[in-house]
Design a protein around this nucleic acid. Structure first.
Lengths: 123, 123
DNA sequence: ACCTTCCGACTACAACTGTAATCGATTCGA
DNA sequence: TCGAATCGATTACAGTTGTAGTCGGAAGGT
């Protein structure tokens, strides 16, 4: 749901709320990663954009707002992963897997781990 | 290389050039997918943006230009895949694989195919 | 009853994107 | 040779994004 795209900067905010919610704007600002130290107004702008995209909601707490995510991280991840697969791999999973496997230069341990995963999935 | 991001619309153009190059702007326009029938000026704008991003190059042919990709599809795909893994999976391959595998509901045939791939990769 | 401080709302503004129109030069068909 | 078609270059313009400043009102200290 909620097909409005979430931008990079907005995602930084979402990650904070996914880790802990509800939070005030000030709390969110305090939890920014060190390579992203934005001003409080910037954080508020991003929060209100996320509000209008229906990605978060807020509830009044006295005279400030408490923000919480409306879309789940799982949903977002699924959506973005699918987007990549569609854009670059013709919607097919296998070519992406092949690409990643090659790219990542998997260790034998990784390979065993994947094999274990696959066994579990076999119907 | 060339860390300028390629936008969605620009990617449509790159796909055409990756399939066949060199092409003139008009040729590119003629090969647009049916859900993306842009005007010729639009195609030219996108080509010139790709030029300034050093994603394509052009060579004069009489009074028009022949465009060719400068960055390879493989490189682009690798870059974007890594970007996704970094943004959403903490840079780790395994969680992405687990997510995709679950998401895609792999058939037994798919699983066998993957197992074959893995065997090939074992050192 | 004031002054400071804090909040959300609104405004700003440049870069990038999607989508195109227009213009000046050139070439090609008649 | 003259008008039409075609090219690349320039300009346009609204929406999104990154990043922030400002403003009016409310809360809280004194």
């Amino acid at each position: 749901m909620s097909s409005e795209r979430i931008s990079d900067a907005e995602l930084t905010i979402m990650e904070i709320l996914w880790e802990r919610a509800p939070l005030t704007a000030t709390d969110v600002a305090a939890r920014l990663p060190h390579d992203r130290e934005w001003s409080l107004p910037t954080v508020k702008t991003l929060l209100s954009r996320l509000l209008s995209k229906a990605a978060v909601e807020h509830r009044a707490d006295g005279r400030r707002f408490l923000y919480s995510p409306l879309i789940g991280r799982e949903d977002y991840v699924a959506h973005e992963s699918k987007r990549l697969v569609d854009r670059l791999f013709g919607g097919k999973f296998m070519p992406l897997f092949a690409h990643l496997a090659e790219q990542e230069n998997l260790s034998d341990a990784d390979i065993s781990e994947i094999e274990r995963l696959l066994q579990e999935m076999k119907s």
